[in-house]
Design a protein around this nucleic acid. Structure first.
Lengths: 242, 242
DNA sequence: CGGGAAGTTGAAGCCAGTCAAGATTTGTGG
DNA sequence: CCACAAATCTTGACTGGCTTCAACTTCCCG
């Protein structure tokens, strides 16, 4: 049985901007169903023109691109509240693939309805643009990490970023969170080799900065990590939820 | 004297989707003026909440982020037709800085009007989202280049990408274009050192793949470059113009 | 209990960074 | 129009962070 938008567990979080009753109702009409998938299942494929768009409701996933010679660049992690398929929605073609890293639940929308939705609810259209801008913001940060920071700094940045994002939607308990990715996923996100990623992770563990093992990430002192990563540790700004 | 949108030299290019008379008129009302700036002038600063948004009309520029320890990541080049300030427009704060690399002319819009514009012209709002998606697409590509490709491949990719983009708006004559950037700009875009960028550029020149010297980029065989870069050489999709 | 995926660790080599110095271009004031 | 300074580009030598190769361990799951 699909969750009603009025009962959406995500909207409770302070991370998301509050929505009017009407907007919730509009989302409910836009939503055509719910999809539950297992870890490892692909959601969208690069280059495809999916008839459906999604919002992640539960679980974590991976956005990635693949090069001709087989290399993989992980572009971002997917968290609950993330919108999936924007590019297919507007440009008609995904620029990256998405797959589930844990079991996931997705809200499903019809791509063909997106334009109507945009027209009849311009303020929600504005919110979609907002989400696109947030993604652009993140990608700029990621590019900066990969381009300018050392492996040690980049990993500090990535783990901190992930942790803070998880905190904002209540995925952190006791300074620890479930992180269902492989070391290879993180390596591919930062343009590092698996071996070097592994060794750098143990250095972070050794220095008691961050401990990611057994699928759980624990961070005790965010400030120290932020310092190494070279970022400010400011509050996560509120964002719209589709 | 400011250019009339109805006379906009950019809209002639096949790169941009055709606009209805009404849309052109709406843009004309949204546009509050024109700004001419010299090479080296900053346009927007990271973190700022500019009251104005822009569309590049003439000239080339640079989007970049700066880290605490002084490193700079060039996030993208700005070409005529690019929209500048989207993030300030929706999120209230720029996530990167923009500055002019050559003399530039910019169309100026009021940020405060953006929301009204969005509401009264949802199809144009949709176009803004489109532009955001295009940028996201590009950033994913850039991240892949920096993360997965060697210096030689990454430079091939970057020069080719720039060249093709320039072709689409008629900036290429005789297989050659003006490219007013510094080698350091390209180095900062690809996460490489200036020295190594310089040496790799001469290797590209030596192999007759691409010649960027005296502020001019010449490419004779795009297919060969594309092959090295590991990308397809397909037609540039049409995009909206704000 | 066997096999495959993921994680760990050591050793060797290279791509790209850093350092340093000189050549070339650009801008500026006398 | 020249002289000097500042940026940018170029080239060589040395260094090191990260990759690659390789082997071993641990953890699942059928």
């Amino acid at each position: 049985m699909a969750t009603k938008c009025s009962q959406c567990p995500l909207r409770r979080h302070a991370l998301f901007k509050t929505m009017s009753e009407q907007d919730v109702a509009a989302m409910q009409r836009f939503k055509v169903g719910e999809l539950t998938i297992e870890a490892g299942t692909p959601v969208l494929i690069e280059g495809s023109n999916s008839p459906q768009l999604f919002t992640a409701l539960r679980g974590l996933g991976l956005r990635y691109k693949t090069t001709i010679d087989g290399a993989r660049q992980v572009v971002n992690f997917v968290f609950p509240g993330d919108f999936i398929g924007l590019q297919a929605g507007v440009m008609g073609e995904m620029s990256h693939s998405v797959e589930a890293s844990s079991n996931m639940t997705l809200c499903v929308f019809n791509r063909s309805e997106l334009w109507n939705f945009f027209k009849s609810h311009p303020e929600r259209g504005f919110d979609i643009t907002w989400l696109a801008a947030v993604e652009e913001h993140f990608l700029g940060e990621a590019l900066t990490s990969v381009g300018q920071r050392s492996a040690f700094e980049a990993l500090s940045w990535a783990l901190l970023r992930t942790f803070v994002r998880a905190e904002a939607i209540g995925l952190v308990q006791n300074r620890s969170m479930r992180l269902p990715f492989r070391q290879k996923d993180l390596a591919d996100a930062l343009g590092l080799s698996l071996v070097h990623t592994n060794k750098t992770l143990s250095k972070l563990r050794e220095k008691q900065l961050a401990d990611w093992s057994d699928g759980h990430l624990t961070i005790n002192d965010k400030a120290r990590l932020a310092d190494i990563a070279g970022v400010e540790l400011d509050v996560v700004p509120r964002r719209p939820l589709m």
